[in-house]
Structure formats: C-alpha cells, structure tokens
Nucleic acid binder design. Structure first.
Lengths: 223, 223
DNA sequence: TAGCTAACGTACTGGTTCGTACATTAGTGA
DNA sequence: TCACTAATGTACGAACCAGTACGTTAGCTA
C-alpha cells in the first residue's frame, strides 16, 4: 500500500527528482488525510505538509483536490481488486468455497479501514468521483466472477436452495463486513460494543460464514 | 419529522416570534444540509438562507456548528427510537417476530435516507458528537429489548440454535439495512445495480428475513 | 400602557484555504 | 558541456466561511 516508502531500488542512488516517487508519496499521504477528515475536511495544505514536496506538486500532478481524491479512490479500489484476484477456491466444494470467500472479504475489510472510510465518504458525495473517473466504472470485480462460479456450482448440485444471484450475495457479504468497520464508532458509542475488538474477531468471522451458508442452504418450501 | 411546517395550530394565529418554531425549523433545514454535504461540506450560511430566520439565530439557539450537528443527531436518533417503541411483536412466535422486526428495521432505513447519511458522517468523525452529547449515550434502544425477548424465547424453546446475543443480531440486521442505503451510490456505480430500486425492494426485504431466520434456526453439529 | 426581555436582524471581521503566477534547478539527450 | 524541459519551490491573492458586535422590536406582564 505504502508505495513511496522504499528509498529507491538497491544500486540506483536516490534521485532528488523522481516523478513516480513524488506522485506515489502524494497519493499515500492524501489517502490518509481524506480518510481521516472526509473530502471537505481534508486540507490540501496539510497533505502537502506531510509530503517531502509542496502543494504546487499536487496541482502539477493531479490538477486539483477533486482529481486527487478520484486518484486516491482509483488506487484504493485497485488494491482490493488485486487481493480478489489472488482468490483461488476452485478446488473447494461450494460450501467451503463460499466460506473462504466470505473470510477473505472479512479480512480485507478489517485490514483496510482507510478504504472503508474512503468509500463511505464517496457515498456521501453520491459517488460523483467514481462517475467522473471512467476508469473505475468498467473495472469489473474478480470477486463477483468467483461468486458466480461458486453459486452456479452450488445451485446445479442442489446444495444451494436460495434464489439469489452473485451481485446480491456479494452485497450481503459486503454489508456485514463493511458495516462492522464503517459503523464501528456510532455502534460502539450507542451499544457499548466494539465490533472491531480483536477478542471478538473470530466470532464475527464465523458468524458471517454461518449466516451466508445457512441462507444459501436453508430448507425451503417447494412450490 | 418536519416539525416546523404546520402554520400554527388552528385558532392560534401565527406569531411573528416563536422560539420553538424557529428552533425546529433550523433543525429541519440543518438535517437536510448536513445530510446533503457532510459536516464540513455543510454551510451555516446555507442553512440560515433556507430558513425564515438568520444565521444569528443558529448561534443564539445552538451555540455553533458543532452543537447544531449534535442536536440534529439527537433528534434523528430520537425519531428512530420512537419508531422502535411502536414495535409490538409479543403476540408472534419467535420466527415470525424476528421477521417482523427485520422488516420494520428495513422499512425505517429505507424511509430515512437522511438519517443513514448523518450516521455515516458521524462515523467519519469517530462518533465525537455522540460522545459529546451525553444524552445520546444513555438513550438505550427499544429494538434491543425486543430482540432480547424474542431471542430468549426462541432459544429456550429450542427453535433458535445459533449462539448469538441481541447486540450482535441487531448488528447483523442493521448491517444489511444500513449498507443497502448508505452504499447505494458506490455499489450502483461499480456493479450497475441500484440496491434501493423500488422493483427490487420486496426481494431484499424477504432476503433479509430469510437470512436472519436461516442463521438462527440452522441445524448445527452438536458438541 | 409602560417597561422589560426574549427573540431577532444587519453588517462586519479575521482567519482559513484552494489555487496560481513566477522564478528556479536537476537531469537528460544532442 | 550545453541547452532544453520536466520537475520543483516561493510567495501571494481572492474567495469563502464560521462566528460576533451591535442595534432593534415583538410580545408578555405588572
């Protein structure tokens, strides 16, 4: 994730001017600042100050605050897509495969709270930056492809009884994983329970898998 | 919700100065403005402009932008608590009661998108306004009491096999309902499916109930 | 009806913040 | 090594915006 940290590959000595490094460093810092304070709460000056370069460079490379936020989103979604591409569950039976998928989704959400915050922020702004991006719209989702395969295998074999498609199942799984992180603070303040407490982690991880599998495999009235 | 609209009770003629009405009108407008633009994106001047009164009154009644947002949150949470108090499922069997509870939660989230946005915004700010409120922390939750009763009835009768408590079950139900509204825009932009589409409403409403009941009643390996 | 005060309006300020004009230098290819 | 340009830094401006000083009046009460 932090792509601008490493002090140049061994052999190459650190150049004073390095467009790629400067650009990546701005993205790293901007990700944290936007996630911390929201779009309007984030300060371009603050981002610049936490960088080895100046505000001028933000406008040089990205054009403005809006485009910087869009670039931050694009990279954040890129990271999750890469993680999803790692997913290999084709050797598992449908039930085990779905549980594995749920767990990977669960873990990724837990490991990237900044990503969750960025997505929440983008929703407050009606996904206007995604719409403006173009790049993000037609990025596809490896997770969705995986779900599609598992689902048809499970439905064909009669194991899965639920009448659900991949997109809706993805929404169901994401909802649980996302909410746990995104609403951690209000939920904790109102109900006195920290949903991201390390001691309860395994419990929630299991609960999600149980929930999805119970839903998919439940006995249903045949019509 | 809109408490400042009615032009005075019949008989009373409209007074020019009406503290309660002015205060309520500010809250109404502020709710919309904060929900629209986020805390930092919201403009005190804009709120004032959409009111029959002036910015001066916002500071007169609420003290400042932060306290105004806190007051907005307090009222929004008050509304949902009132709705939850209406809930009467004691005459239903545990399975029907849980489904009814899930449906009421579903409906309330759908009917109050502004509330969802306010909660999202408050989470971006680490629930600091709830923490500062005092009032909100010890407000309790009628829904939680209802869940507790249904859950123990279901568990005692052996109908519910899941080892889950009321708070976690509430989280599970809320996650689905909340995500559907809060992430509508990014989800729609990325996956091309509007989660709040009226045509799909019944489907999701049923899906939630099915999911929760399948989870609670699933056959489990006895240890 | 006189006087008191809660309720209200106007006009302004000081700090903040996005964005840019202008000047400068590191690295590179001829 | 020279010239050219991509990359960078400084300093500043103009608009915005939360908050306030100060003055006014509606409505209630004695």
């Amino acid at each position: 994730m932090t792509s601008a940290e490493e002090p140049a590959r061994p052999g190459e000595r650190e150049r004073v001017r390095d467009a790629a490094r400067t650009r990546a460093e701005i993205l790293d810092v901007a990700t944290r600042e936007f996630a911390r304070a929201g779009y309007d709460g984030a300060r371009v000056d603050e981002i610049a100050a936490r960088t080895r370069t100046t505000k001028r460079m933000i406008y040089y490379y990205f054009g403005g605050k809006e485009q910087l936020f869009t670039a931050v989103l694009e990279r954040a979604y890129g990271v999750i897509r890469e993680a999803e591409q790692e997913l290999d569950v084709d050797h598992l039976d449908p039930v085990a495969a779905i549980r594995r998928l749920a767990e990977v989704t669960f873990d990724h959400h837990e490991q990237h709270p900044d990503f969750i915050r960025l997505v929440s922020i983008e929703n407050i702004h009606d996904a206007q930056h995604i719409a403006a991006s173009g790049k993000l719209g037609r990025m596809g989702s490896p997770a969705l492809d995986v779900i599609r395969r598992i689902l048809s295998a499970g439905q064909n074999s009669g194991l899965f009884t639920a009448d659900v498609d991949a997109v809706d199942l993805h929404a169901m799984i994401s909802a649980f994983c996302f909410f746990r992180v995104s609403n951690r603070h209000t939920f904790g303040a109102l109900f006195g329970r920290d949903l991201v407490d390390a001691d309860r982690r395994e419990r929630y991880r299991t609960m999600l898998g149980d929930m999805v599998i119970a839903y998919l495999t439940a006995e249903r009235a045949t019509d």
